[in-house]
């Protein structure tokens, strides 16, 4: 069900800027790249195997 809102108040440019700083987005993107890197899982597996055996 669609919700229709009439004359909704939008945040100002300044409020948006304060809330959405580039550094936090960059941090999120770097973390995303890091967890998507298959090598960390390969190295993690090797490391676990070394400890296990």
């Amino acid at each position: 069900m669609i919700k229709i809102l009439l004359d909704r108040e939008e945040p100002s440019s300044e409020q948006i800027r304060q809330r959405m700083d580039f550094e936090s987005i960059l941090g999120g993107a770097k973390y995303q790249n890091w967890i998507m890197n298959p090598w960390i899982y390969v190295l993690g597996g090797v490391f676990t195997a070394l400890i296990w055996f």
Binding site: I2, K3, I4, L5, L6, D7, R8
Partner: peptide, 12 residues
């Protein structure tokens, strides 16, 4: 999130 349509009454 819920699908919403935001409209101003002048454009409406």
């Amino acid at each position: 999130a819920r699908r919403t349509v935001s409209i101003d009454s002048v454009t409406l």
